[in-house]
Amino acid sequence: MANKAIAASAARAAPRPASGVSAFFLKHEWARGYTLLSPTLGVMIIAMCVPVFMLTAHSFWTQNYLTIDKTFTFANYVQFWEKEIYFKLLVKSIKISAIVTFTTVVLAYPMAYFMAFKVKKNKLVWLILITVPFWTSFLLRVFAWKIILGFNGVINSGLISLGLIQEPLEFLLYNPTAVIITLAHAWAAFVILPIYVSLEKIDRSLLEAATDLGDGPVSRFLRVTLPLSMPGVIAACLFVFIPTVGDYVTPKLVGGTEGIMIGNIIQSQFGKANNWPLGSALSIYMVFGITLCVLGFLLVARLITKGGSLKAS
């Protein structure tokens, strides 16, 4: 019986000279990896890299009523500096995003800390509670604030019917503050997860070691927990800051004329204004501005963490 089985397996192993192609794949792991990856990568390149390249190309062309003049020119880039509104709007958008980022991160940190360290039972429930809004309609969340902050909205009508005010408060809607509140709410779930993950990853024995070595809760938090959670905080900042700079939905719904952002101008170039090359150039400026801010932020973050570790040593 055993011999028969062995004979059978010998037949199975009898030289099966792998053909050239499959031998190549067998020998080279990277070839197998790239092959599996190629469809996904191909789609990402066709649907993202090529379009972004064309966007860049557009920014060097000009709109000639309904046609595009494909003569290479810096005209759109020059135009950005000629009307100071563009630059002002870019700076304002970055400012709004920075405030939103700061607010959401500061508000989310204790929540993430609570979930990572305090929740023992039903962690899954808390996690789901936090992540569900993350997936639900962005438009609806923004829209909810429009009806809350509106002139005849939830807050005003609520306060009036309670008799606290006589006239609706006009300052609630259509200003940058409304944009900030709405964005802070819409992006709240995005910041918790990265911070939570970085806190959860911290080896609990490090905290015990800090306590063992004489740190109280506060100094242990400042010297161990906070520095070790910085990667999560930084990731959270980028998650919120980068996409919000270009947002056009929130300002359009709750920002009014005062709360307008660079995204609205870009969007209008592709809509009513119909000047795609200018819109492209504006979006390139926006990406450039975002990149500068992110690099500056990362640099500062690195300096701070480095300084911290030097102090610690």
Partner: peptide
Amino acid sequence: VVPGIILGIAL
């Protein structure tokens, strides 16, 4: 992370 508006207009 890329702002949606960039992807939108590029596409």
